[in-house]
């Protein structure tokens, strides 16, 4: 690998983490009053905001209505000041359109859409500050927002990116690692059943390594799910104290 040494001989990474160590995850649910569900999540230096509206009547073209389940509508966008170089188009470019589609597919696999026929659920995610792992941070934030909106899901959806350096899988890549030419894989998992909601890898990797990489990603996702579960429980406790139940 040219240039940066992503994993030192002592087994430490650029930001001082161990190979399987996640970045610090901090999250809050129910941050906004207008939305049906909202959440803010920080994973290291990546900060994301997720807002859920719905389930509500279909808006816009009614021809998209599904008679047996709800339509999930996702929009991913990045604030113009979220990256080192100013982003000219916060949404609507190919990269964000792809990301919106991936989020939609992930949540179609997790939300119990059959409970709301002929309706629509909007999930809007915004990256306020980006430092790698945008997809996974968005999924994690959106999960909390969907839970906050009270929409039933099969399980939490937890996502994590994993890279492969010197025969070692690295969990939860930051921007410097992502851009350092590592083959990385993004995985969204329903942790309780170990079901994969979305798996994406667009880099070269020997197929013998795939299994170890997926294994590492699943472990990382389960780590994330523990944190998210903690956040949800904490939030519920606070809310129940406030409402006096």
């Amino acid at each position: 690998m040219a240039g940066l040494e992503l994993l030192s001989d002592q087994g430490y990474r650029l930001d001082g983490r161990k190979a399987t160590e996640l970045r610090k995850v901090q999250a809050r649910m129910g941050v906004f009053a207008q939305a049906d569900g909202s959440a803010y999540l920080e994973q290291g230096n990546t900060k994301a905001l997720a807002v859920v509206y719905g389930p509500h009547e279909m808006r816009g073209s009614r021809s998209r209505t599904l008679h047996d389940r709800a339509v999930i509508n996702c929009q991913y966008s990045m604030a113009t000041f979220s990256t080192a170089e100013r982003k000219r188009r916060p949404h609507g470019d190919r990269k964000s359109t792809e990301m919106s589609l991936h989020l939609k597919q992930t949540f179609e696999a997790a939300v119990m859409t059959q409970l709301y026929p002929r309706s629509q659920i909007d999930i809007y995610v915004k990256i306020l500050q980006s430092d790698g792992g945008n997809y996974s941070v968005c999924v994690n934030a959106a999960t909390l927002a969907v839970i906050d909106a009270g929409i039933p899901m099969r399980d939490y959806v937890c996502a994590c990116t994993v890279g492969f350096v010197d025969e070692t899988p690295l969990a939860d890549l930051c921007y410097a690692e992502e851009s350092g030419g590592v083959s990385s894989l993004a995985l969204a998992l329903l942790p309780r059943g170990g079901q994969i909601a979305l798996l994406q890898m667009d880099a070269r990797l020997h197929q013998d390594h795939l299994e170890t990489l997926i294994e590492a990603a699943m472990t990382a996702c389960k780590g994330v799910s523990k944190v998210l579960d903690e956040v949800v429980r904490q939030h519920l406790q606070e809310v129940s104290v406030l409402t006096g139940e």
Partner: peptide, 25 residues
Amino acid sequence: SISTADGSALVKVGNTTVICGIKAE
């Protein structure tokens, strides 16, 4: 609060929330 921006501020007036990020080029 936004370290990727050259200057940033988040304001809440009641529930209304606005974030401003400044990028210099």
